[in-house]
């Protein structure tokens, strides 16, 4: 698993030090010139240029087996979609390679969003999705609220599994 952002290596090293992501390889792409631009995942308009939220499954032959680009910062695909795309490739399991940043010393930045915030953040999001979905008679709107609620529930469940809850 590879995580790409416009953060530099020191900031990514700092994030890796805080978040339990032992098999995530961090790739720094400041300016978006290396990965993000060529993948159509760079948004030059937001915050001076950052990644669009996305997930891509690349098959061993280099083809793109799955691609999801979020409509906004909170729009992410689901684990079920991702695992479905991976399982459809029919590959043997491999030992996950070690992750981490490409280099750089952790910069000591603590981050505005820390691991201890995650379950609280998504529980709050879930309740908001329930409340807002219930305010509308519009089916399309309610479907969006439901999708957001399910995303929150999946994230909370994954976090609980990771932490043995």
């Amino acid at each position: 698993m590879i995580a790409v952002s416009t953060d530099d290596e020191a900031r990514q090293a700092g994030m890796f030090a805080r978040w339990p992501t032992p098999h995530v390889r961090y790739v720094a792409d400041p300016g978006g010139d290396t990965y993000l631009g060529s993948l159509g995942l760079f948004d030059p308009e937001e915050r001076g240029g950052i990644a669009r939220p996305a997930l891509i499954v690349v098959a061993p032959d280099g083809s793109v087996a799955y691609r999801y680009v979020g409509r906004d910062f909170a729009d992410r695909t689901t684990d079920a979609e991702m695992f479905g795309a991976l399982e459809a490739l029919g590959l043997d399991a491999i030992e996950p390679p070690a992750g981490g940043p490409a280099g750089g010393e952790a910069d000591g930045h603590r981050g505005a969003f820390r691991p201890e915030h995650l379950p609280v953040y998504f529980r709050g999001n879930r309740m908001a999705a329930v409340a807002i979905g219930g305010r509308s008679e519009d089916r399309g709107f309610r479907a969006i609220a439901r999708e957001h609620r399910l995303m929150c529930e999946a994230t909370i469940a994954a976090w609980d599994r990771l932490n043995g809850a």
Binding site: I2, A3, S5, R47, I50, L55, V58, P60, M82
Partner: peptide, 30 residues
């Protein structure tokens, strides 16, 4: 996808090992 290039070694290394790659983007550690 990008062609063979040292810049893309994280992807290519996993593919050479017979694995699929999940590439995700995130908005930065603010």
């Amino acid at each position: 996808m990008p062609n063979d290039d040292a810049l893309y070694e994280p992807i290519l290394g996993l593919r050479r090992g017979g694995g699929a790659v999940v590439l995700l983007t995130y908005r930065g550690d603010w």
